[in-house]
Computed example of a mutant assay.
Amino acid sequence: MPYEWNPRPTDHHTNWRLSLWPYRSLLRKDFVIFMGGTASLILIPLMAVLGTGAMWYVLPFFVLMFSGLWWAINVSYSRGEVLEELSVDNTTAHLVRNNPDGSKQTWQANRYWVTVQFHPKGGPVENYITLRGGDREVELGAFLDVSERAALYDDLKRAFR
């Protein structure tokens, strides 16, 4: 699961922290392996035309394809660098969202007035989770999978009980 409790909320632990992040199917070390394999596969057909005039017609397309793939994966990584941290102590619930562009969004409310709301349909995503407290309602974990948001909702309901 791309979220972690620290410590897990129980009757003994009233102070806890929840960290959420998007799932990464391709880790950075696997990215290097993937790009190396792609470069190797590109070189196989390029070896057939090595030293001929045809190589200069084919080479720009291979370079364009390789650099486009590199750029697309890096953009995907940078857009996925989101971290949401919900920390709850004896009196306050505090949510900080670190956006991919480096900006931060914060929300704070009295922990006893916080309600967890679940919107199976009608939200921006299916199984949309929001926290309501004070005069604002904020989303939580919109980047998670549908089943992960449902499991998170159950955990949050128990934690705020």
Results as ranks from 00 to 15, higher is better:
W71S: 04
Y3A: 00
G36E: 07
R79K: 12
W107D: 00
L46V: 08
L46I: 07
P60C: 02
H13K: 07
R161V: 06
T130F: 03
V88M: 08
L18N: 04
A54R: 12
G122W: 15
Y153T: 12
D101P: 05
A93T: 08
Y23W: 10
V114Q: 02
T38F: 14
A39V: 07
V75T: 09
I42A: 15
K29N: 09
A48N: 09
E81H: 14
V75A: 03
R28M: 10
E126L: 02
L41G: 14
S40Q: 02
S78K: 15
V32P: 02
V138L: 08
D30P: 01
D89G: 02
R24M: 06
S78M: 06
G134F: 06
N99E: 10
E81N: 14
H94L: 01
R136S: 10
F143P: 06
V88H: 12
W16D: 04
N74C: 02
V58K: 10
L50I: 11
E139D: 13
E85K: 10
A150E: 15
R136K: 14
T52L: 05
G51S: 05
Q105F: 05
Y128F: 15
F61L: 03
M35Q: 13
K29P: 02
G53W: 15
P60Y: 05
R17L: 07
Y77S: 00
P2T: 06
E81R: 14
F61N: 01
Q105T: 14
W71E: 08
L50H: 12
A54S: 08
V114A: 03
L156G: 08
P100R: 08
H13M: 07
A93H: 04
W70N: 00
Y23H: 13
P100G: 05
H12D: 06
V116W: 11
G80C: 01
E139G: 14
W56F: 14
V63Q: 04
L46S: 07
D135E: 12
P2W: 13
V125Y: 10
W71V: 14
Y77M: 02
V49C: 09
L69Y: 11
Y112F: 11
F61I: 01
Q117Y: 08
W21F: 03
N74H: 15
I129F: 00
R17C: 07
E139K: 11
F61S: 04
T52E: 04
T91Q: 15
E85D: 04
S147E: 13
F31N: 11
E81W: 14
K157N: 09
R97A: 09
L20H: 02
Y23R: 13
N15I: 09
D145I: 02
T91W: 03
T115F: 01
H94K: 11
D11R: 11
N15A: 15
T14D: 13
